[in-house]
Design a protein around this nucleic acid. Structure first.
Lengths: 210, 210
DNA sequence: GGCGTTCACTTAACGCTGTTAACTGAACGT
DNA sequence: ACGTTCAGTTAACAGCGTTAAGTGAACGCC
């Protein structure tokens, strides 16, 4: 007769981390909509109700995962910025870092940037709620990029214009590149670098003063 | 005592059109996930089961709506091409038509270009099934764009390079712009045009010969 | 040592979803 | 008059996110 399994009991912080780890695995493989709270719970050997002790709802659980990804991308971008010799080098380095992140973590990128956000923010419950609005991190990473563009305009490397709009335009292009490559997994790997380079040159050439 | 409403009875083609019309209204307002088959049926005064007499499942219903929309994109792009005076005008006109389409049909755009395809295509049922693979229309539209880029290279307007890669680069940029704007519904409408214009100029300037 | 409280977790359920099997009743062809 | 087709229904299934209420072990305190 099989022994009844001991009930798992973790401290709140540990359980929260365990849930995040398991949920990330399933979200990244299955996508947001096809991932069920019951499946996440089952993979941890707990009941779905327990998930709601640590996260207010499914959307908040995904938000927490998104937040981690945002942090990783942010550090990669700032490191690329500070290590570059010139602002134009930094521009290209940030571009490459962004693409590298997207191609190295395509499922994370899709989850963070290509998944439709849940319609309404969930109600705030004291003590449990989501950690940060991921838009904060995203906005901060983008702010650094924007400052870089502004410097390139002020030093006369880029043509005159609104730094915010120009930074958004560049970001749109690189995001489109990453989304395109992620959406086409059969795209020949040799041509991926060529396409990325073409986009990078196109963006830079399109912004430099002539 | 209220009279019992007469049962609605339409011919299959009429009912199919009526369903498409009602479903489109609800899908576009509520989004795909939040739209329920029961709600579509209720708005037509029929039962949800009837929907399955005309479409194999919810996804196929949305696909049919997307197919209509993307036919619209194809015609808009070809019209923009043929009506333009010069190839460079055509390039810009196609760009604008693409962006206008994406902003006018964000749900369809997201579903076709930003949704991860499920691992297995739904089973084909004789007589009912979805009409066309949307990738066919997409590939045809891109082929026209690619031919336009090739002409711009050959006439010396764009710098030398691989036409396919350069067309993909431009498409990545405009796709990123559309995806960005779709993902940020609160983006100030006045600035949307400015951002689209900046991206369009950036792409064109980045590809023209200097 | 006993006791109330806290904490991590469960059981059982609610209302909702997409979807299907089985049935109905009118219209049509022969 | 009768069998078939056609458009639509009723009732149900399995699964979803989520919640109210309960359970039992561990902890602080006297």
């Amino acid at each position: 007769m099989p022994r009844k399994a001991a009930k798992p009991r973790l401290k709140a912080a540990e359980r929260r981390e365990a849930i995040l780890l398991a949920a990330k695995d399933i979200f990244l493989v299955e996508g947001y909509e096809r991932t069920t709270m019951r499946r996440i719970a089952a993979s941890l050997g707990i009941t779905p109700t327990t998930l709601y002790l640590h996260f207010p709802d499914k959307a908040a659980l995904m938000q927490a995962i998104c937040d981690e990804a945002f942090a990783e991308l942010g550090t990669a971008m700032t490191r690329a910025t500070v290590e570059a010799r010139t602002p134009l080098d930094a521009f290209r380095a940030v571009f490459d870092a962004y693409v590298a992140f997207g191609l190295a973590h395509p499922r994370e990128y899709r989850l963070v940037f290509m998944t439709e956000p849940p319609p309404e923010a969930s109600a705030h419950r004291p003590g449990i709620g989501r950690r940060h609005d991921p838009e904060d991190r995203g906005a901060r990473a983008f702010a650094g990029f924007q400052a870089l563009v502004r410097r390139l305009i002020e030093t006369g490397v880029f043509h005159a214009g609104d730094a915010t709009t120009m930074a958004e335009a560049a970001w749109a292009a690189v995001h489109g590149l990453v989304a395109l490559l992620i959406g086409m997994p059969d795209y020949p790997p040799a041509e991926r670098a060529a396409l990325a380079d073409t986009v990078a040159r196109m963006v830079a050439e399109g912004l430099v003063k002539r």
